[in-house]
Computed example of a mutant assay.
Amino acid sequence: MDKQKLAAATVLIFDPVRGNMLMTRSVLHGIGFRRIEGMTSLREIRRRLRDVDISLLVVEATEAHEEVVELLRAQRLGELGVNPFVPVIATLWAGSTDLVASLMNVGCDDVLLRPFSQIQTTERVRAIITARKQFVVTSDYVGPDRGRTGGESMAPEAFDPPNALRDRVTMATFDPVMQAEILAQARRKVDQDRLAKLARRIAMAAEVTIQAKGRGDANAGFVVDLLESSAELVRAAKRLDIDEVQEIAMVLEGVAARTSAPGPERVENAHLTRQLALALYVAYAVEGGEAFKAELEKTLDKVRGRLDRAKERAKRRQTLALSLVS
């Protein structure tokens, strides 16, 4: 890896401890980076992420773990900054399984344990440049593909994300206009994919609500998921900047909100929610309609079985209670 080429890439460092931030900066400088910005405030990082020219983000996630996880989640979902595909390396002082998993679950490219050497850092940077994992999009995740089961009919399609670090290092002439166009196309693809997957998730939650026949506690979890997914869908629709999509999404959110009240109206509103969600899904899911129908039916079979078993348990409890009273 040519150190001179790394000099053209911009790196952002976040570490709330200034001394540790300076140490990270020194390591990155030692392997060839020259445009390095170190920050101890997450507010500063959020502001700087709006710059499309960022090539690599290095964040220390031990002390402010929850805040860093939320920042990375928002960044990958396109809610923060202009480039949700920026390569991200998180650092930790201890390799707790839960801490590492939470970072990977919001789309980190890699996690580096402290203290780390120039050799270790060089290996991780080289991997991002030459062998970065493909990205996948689900209703609640955008980031490197962590591996999927080959038999899953609805497994998300992996794609090569824009790689600002690779492009800065390997391109003979960096064309910012062309890179901005590539980034815009990739962002639009992600937003459309998320919209379709959120709509699918809402349709399934609405169908489960319908199957539960409006019972108050039998499907409370699905109603909560429906409401949360609807709010996410509205945000995804706004990023697409298509008036018709935004209007449908906002109507869907309003109808979904009315499913929170138990009773016959819940089922009626769930039916309408399902119809609106399916309309959005069909519009933006290029393929997979038949697979989705099969998956939906499989899920509903499981839900019906659970509801039937719950009904039987309720009957047995009622019978037992009556026998004790008598």
Score class of each variant (00 low, 15 high):
residue 281 Y to G: 02
residue 61 A to N: 01
residue 259 T to W: 04
residue 73 R to I: 00
residue 259 T to P: 01
residue 48 R to D: 06
residue 139 S to V: 09
residue 134 Q to F: 05
residue 183 L to R: 03
residue 80 L to Q: 04
residue 163 N to W: 05
residue 83 N to H: 08
residue 95 G to E: 12
residue 63 E to P: 00
residue 10 T to M: 09
residue 159 F to H: 10
residue 161 P to G: 07
residue 53 D to P: 00
residue 181 E to G: 07
residue 180 A to D: 10
residue 187 R to E: 04
residue 172 A to C: 08
residue 151 G to W: 13
residue 109 D to F: 05
residue 217 D to P: 02
residue 317 R to P: 00
residue 231 A to E: 07
residue 182 I to K: 12
residue 245 V to Y: 02
residue 221 G to A: 09
residue 282 V to T: 13
residue 54 I to G: 00
residue 208 V to F: 05
residue 266 R to M: 10
residue 160 D to N: 13
residue 84 P to L: 05
residue 304 R to D: 07
residue 256 A to M: 08
residue 190 V to K: 01
residue 49 L to T: 04
residue 137 V to D: 01
residue 286 V to Y: 05
residue 45 I to V: 15
residue 7 A to H: 05
residue 179 Q to S: 11
residue 208 V to R: 05
residue 238 K to L: 14
residue 267 V to G: 02
residue 127 A to W: 03
residue 80 L to M: 07
residue 213 K to A: 15
residue 276 L to K: 01
residue 221 G to T: 12
residue 173 T to R: 12
residue 217 D to C: 05
residue 74 A to M: 10
residue 261 A to Q: 13
residue 184 A to H: 03
residue 182 I to Q: 08
residue 289 G to T: 13
residue 191 D to N: 14
residue 30 G to D: 06
residue 178 M to T: 14
residue 203 A to P: 00
residue 124 R to S: 08
residue 38 G to F: 03
residue 105 N to E: 15
residue 173 T to W: 05
residue 209 T to C: 14
residue 297 E to C: 04
residue 11 V to Q: 02
residue 131 A to T: 10
residue 251 V to G: 03
residue 130 T to S: 12
